[in-house]
């Protein structure tokens, strides 16, 4: 019978595994630098687009420039853990297809953990700094008092919000256990992150429902950020968002593991 391993064991082994990944990554220094530059360029392009829009249109649906900026920064930070920690999901399809995935099945540790721990995407950290900078800047311009409690709330809601994106990417990646060429599904779920930076109030009823309950992108930034932006009038869904994030991630993890358990190699 499989022995349950403690959290301490996993933390220790995680750092050992990613140290190897970072070492091997650092031996391709040019690739690392270019990837980081690429990440920065995408973020700058995103900001320029944002700024261009607001030079012509000062507000969107009652949301001012700095509120939108806050939402934008919030979504950037909330998607970073997925980018950094779960990047190996993009390789899952290849691993399953070529049969290499079998090597993960023979380790006496959690399969999902082992697979994801193999890659730590350093370039995602650039995005984290961008996001934190944006939140900090927009907060300083908004007339929201900065308190210790508010900061704790922000951190808790950021962390739990990051589970939503993680859940969507994990579930999308896991489809490759059933369908070939699941790249497009993963790509689609990545594109959904673009939806997170707009307030859900711009949609009509049907799409509000879809983006809240079917593709829960509204929980990446809109609902959790309400706790900070509108502290006097927080909707119930905002308070529930941490539970929803963790719950969905758990479900996606189960889905991933279910796919992995039916995996039987490529037959070679």
């Amino acid at each position: 019978m499989e022995r349950k391993r403690g959290l301490r064991f996993y933390v220790k082994i995680y750092f050992k595994i990613i140290a190897q990944d970072i070492k091997s990554r650092m031996s391709y220094r040019a690739d690392f630098i270019l990837s980081t530059l690429g990440m920065i360029a995408t973020n700058i392009a995103g900001f320029v687009a944002f700024w261009l829009m607001f030079t012509k249109f000062p507000s969107i649906n009652g949301w001012g420039y700095y509120e939108m900026l806050f939402l934008y920064g919030f979504s950037l930070v909330a998607i970073t853990p997925t980018q950094c920690l779960l990047d190996n999901n993009w390789q899952l399809r290849q691993n399953v297809y070529t049969g290499d995935f079998i090597k993960y099945c023979f380790r006496p540790i959690n399969l999902f953990f082992y697979f994801e721990s193999e890659v730590f995407d350093l370039k995602g950290l650039g995005q984290l700094f961008f996001g934190i900078g944006t939140i900090w800047y927009s907060w300083s311009k908004l007339s929201i008092p900065f308190t210790f409690f508010a900061l704790v709330k922000l951190i808790v809601f950021l962390i739990t919000a990051s589970f939503i994106m993680a859940a969507m990417q994990t579930a999308a990646a896991a489809t490759c256990f059933w369908i070939m060429n699941s790249f497009y599904i993963l790509d689609l779920s990545l594109k959904l992150k673009d939806y997170a930076k707009y307030p859900i109030t711009i949609y009509n009823g049907l799409f509000k429902f879809i983006f809240t309950f079917i593709f829960p992108v509204a929980f990446i930034a809109y609902y959790p950020s309400q706790v900070i932006l509108k502290p006097d009038n927080v909707p119930l869904l905002s308070w529930l968002s941490p539970l929803i994030g963790i719950g969905l991630f758990y479900l996606s993890y189960k889905f991933w593991m279910k796919g992995a358990s039916k995996y039987d190699g490529s037959g070679s």
């Binding site: 990440m39 700058i44 392009a45 370039k123």
Partner: peptide, 27 residues
């Protein structure tokens, strides 16, 4: 460079922004 991801994503974001595909050039 033997490295694709970074350069390609740079190209994509620059082309999309400066060609007007994200926001019409009129704005």
């Amino acid at each position: 460079t033997q490295s694709i991801w970074g350069i390609n994503i740079m190209k994509q974001s620059i082309v999309l922004l400066l060609s007007g595909a994200t926001i019409p050039l009129a704005f």
